[in-house]
Design a protein around this nucleic acid. Structure first.
Lengths: 251, 251
DNA sequence: TAGTGGTCTAGACCACGAA
DNA sequence: TCGTGGTCTAGACCACTAA
């Protein structure tokens, strides 16, 4: 399987380890041989062994823990089905392309932050059509699955609509933000989601406990009401390896 | 702006260069100081200067060209609007979050491959509900924008439906594959798209001319007809930085 | 405290690109 | 040909983790 340009020593070591991982020699969560062990085993300098382990991490196969070792990653992605509504049996049993599990996994929410603020990023200001110092209601949360942070979500709504309502409270009540918007005469009737993958900045690496070198998925949802007023912009950043984003629609 | 853990020398150099890029000192396409120049300038070893440049590449800001230098990346993403249909003015002028351009850019297609084959990956077999040696029609293409490869698309259809039809030809005729499926009594009525971001393998790095360390976006579209038969599976792999994926729907 | 990964030095040789 | 980035060595010290 490894017929690549394995003239390079570090690539040879990396592909050896990769194949061993695939073969099950190192199951998910297990520890690989250390830098010194590999250097001795292959008769190379520690820097070269290190480079091989870095390659594995960059492939998304392992994650390095200082003072401990390199460990085989384990993560089956969650499926986020944006356009749900249909429980009918339109889809055959074929299932998804990727292994994925939603059930039997514990979801927790923390780093909740709710409040009115004038500190709104320009890209959000533009979409919400907010003028200079105009305020917005900001709702920020972090989601974790089985203890691993997977998604940070920040929602923005015009203060002219949401200020002083349940939307500006921690608990928005039954039905959540969208139900409250409907109560206020601003029921969302149309949604747009823009997805983009990119490399994270340092704050995101920390907040999502990302393996260095692995991407994040950005998702920006925009909701408009019947008057074509943008009533919410929700900016999400997800651990790209933790999620599959699904969209379904009729022709 | 750079109040991070800049105790590390390579981080200090990397953030310096990053800020200079942001400030416009090094515009898109321009060349950064080389490894030796940086080593001399900062009084560090070449390995450390190298590590700093590697950090910039990993942030997606630059790209290294052997024998030449490190260059500032330039790429505004394309928008792929999956669920089009509506030209109506539902959306206010607010526009997209990301800079994006579709107009005035030249789109080219190459590496076209069309034919009937029994060599179908298992994950595709499962979705198409193909039995053991059953064949499929495969249509593969690569898309480039302004000379830069951005997307590889491979479409699979059951041979029992598509073999011997225009779908198995290079030119599928007016309306394309879906129009032909409709002619054959298998008009797609429902679509599903699963998106996932991941790190590319070596073949993809080459085929999409990717900067090492940057992610790709996987997209798998499944189309079913009125009888809930899966009539097409289209697997796309895109340069993640080249694309924004957009979905719009009514509540 | 012992072992791990993280950073860094000061050299070396090679492959590649542009002049 | 010459400068560039790519690979590699053989050391060193530090920060962190686990026992």
């Amino acid at each position: 399987m490894a017929g690549e340009s394995d003239r390079k020593k570090y690539r040879r070591i990396a592909t050896d380890l990769r194949d061993a991982i695939r073969a099950g020699t190192y199951p998910a969560g297990s520890r690989l041989p250390g830098e010194n062990a590999l250097a001795a085993q292959y008769g190379v300098s520690r820097a070269t062994a290190r480079q091989a382990l870095a390659q594995l991490a960059q492939w998304g196969l392992t994650t390095a823990r200082q003072g401990s070792g390199n460990y085989v990653r384990d993560f089956r992605p969650l499926i986020r089905d944006a356009i749900k509504r249909l429980g009918n049996g339109t889809w055959p049993a074929g299932q998804s392309v990727w292994d994925a599990e939603t059930e039997g996994r514990s979801l927790t929410v923390d780093q909740i932050e709710v409040g009115e603020t004038a500190d709104v990023p320009d890209r959000i200001r533009r979409i919400l059509a907010l003028s200079g110092g105009e305020k917005a209601v900001k709702r920020s949360r972090r989601f974790s699955v089985d203890g691993k942070a997977v998604l940070v979500s920040t929602s923005w709504l015009p203060a002219s609509i949401a200020a002083g309502t349940a939307i500006a409270e921690r608990d928005t009540g039954p039905g959540g933000t969208y139900a409250r918007l409907a109560d206020l005469g601003h029921r969302p009737v149309r949604f747009r989601e823009d997805l983009r993958s990119r490399m994270p900045d340092e704050g995101e690496v920390e907040r999502l406990a990302l393996t260095p070198g692995m991407p994040v998925q950005d998702l920006i949802r925009t909701a408009v009401d019947a008057d074509s007023t943008v009533v919410e912009v929700n900016e999400m950043t997800a651990d790209a390896l933790a999620y599959v984003f699904r969209y379904e629609w009729d022709a």
